[in-house]
């Protein structure tokens, strides 16, 4: 199809553009509506006249959300938990991926491990939450951040392992072996030779881990029971269920909680596209 449709026929070209713009409009309009609502005065968004741009733009909702409702704290919680969970997964996941690509295991342990990582991807998170809840209680673990960093491994660790596997496989063994004949231990070879070469893989896997954990809902809802521990998705959910018509603040909160990740995504887009080719399959 690609060769037939470089757009020689003008009618077809117009049709393609019309469709593409319609699609973009449907994708973007709701997001624009959120921005729009966040900048309007309550008088305006609750008026029967639809306005596509705010008539008297105001930042009062942003002030309300950041100052009165403590969104900075929620953003901080989310960033901390998200970053720590990602680092933990990259660390343990890369060690595992390295080991799995370099050694043979007895009893098909490696295959079992990898298969299990795949199965985890399909388990609904709610299914694990009751045992996890009891377990963290029995372990007297009360720090919600620590709990979430651990619980998020359910999502991020299989992701990290599967994404890193390909990157580790690409690195020729000879490189480490050369270092080891020169007297380096395996750990030294791993740290000095292998890790620098898999940084693109770590970046790609890290991005997906960050996105997943930043947006996570189920575990955050169950373990963060007081506002001081909320992550942004939970803050937004509470906002929706408790103050249904405070739209301005809800919209401002929504934008503030998506923005860091969106900016980050734009910033790392190249990595992201490469990662997606891999993850499209995960």
């Amino acid at each position: 199809m690609s060769s037939s449709s470089r757009g020689r026929q003008p009618l077809k070209r117009i049709l393609v553009y019309l469709l593409a713009f319609a699609v973009v409009a449907v994708a973007l309009f709701p997001i624009w509506w959120l921005v729009n609502t966040s900048l309007k005065t309550p008088l305006e968004f609750l008026s029967p006249h639809v306005t596509f741009f705010p008539r008297a733009p105001t930042l009062e909702h942003y002030r309300d959300v950041l100052v009165e409702r403590g969104f900075l704290r929620f953003l901080g919680n989310t960033a901390l938990v998200s970053a720590a969970a990602t680092i933990l997964s990259l660390l343990t996941g890369s060690l595992a991926a390295y080991s799995l690509t370099r050694f043979r295991f007895p009893l098909g342990l490696d295959a079992l491990f990898l298969l299990w990582a795949l199965v985890i991807r399909t388990i609904p998170p709610i299914v694990l939450v009751i045992p996890l809840f009891i377990m963290f209680r029995e372990l007297r673990l009360t720090n919600v951040r620590v709990i979430l960093i651990l619980a998020y491994q359910v999502y991020t660790l299989p992701l990290a392992i599967w994404m890193l596997l390909g990157f580790f496989r690409e690195i020729p063994r000879e490189l480490e072996e050369a270092a080891m004949t020169d007297g380096a231990s395996r750990i030294q070879a791993l740290v000095r030779i292998v890790y620098p070469l898999v940084t693109p893989g770590l970046a790609a896997a890290g991005i997906f881990c960050l996105i997943t954990t930043w947006n996570e809902f189920t575990y955050a809802l169950i373990f963060a029971r007081i506002p001081a521990d909320f992550t942004v998705p939970i803050a937004i959910a509470t906002f929706i269920t408790e103050y249904r018509t405070l739209w301005g603040s809800l919209a401002a909160g929504g934008i503030l909680s998506s923005l860091p990740l969106l900016l980050f995504t734009v910033f790392v887009q190249r990595h992201l596209l490469r990662g997606f080719a891999l993850r499209g399959t995960f």
Binding site: P30, W33, I211, W214, N215, F217, A237, L250, S258
Partner: peptide, 11 residues
């Protein structure tokens, strides 16, 4: 790319 709860807020 949006967090699901933000999507919910939009809708």
């Amino acid at each position: 790319m949006l967090p699901t709860t933000v999507v919910c807020a939009v809708w």
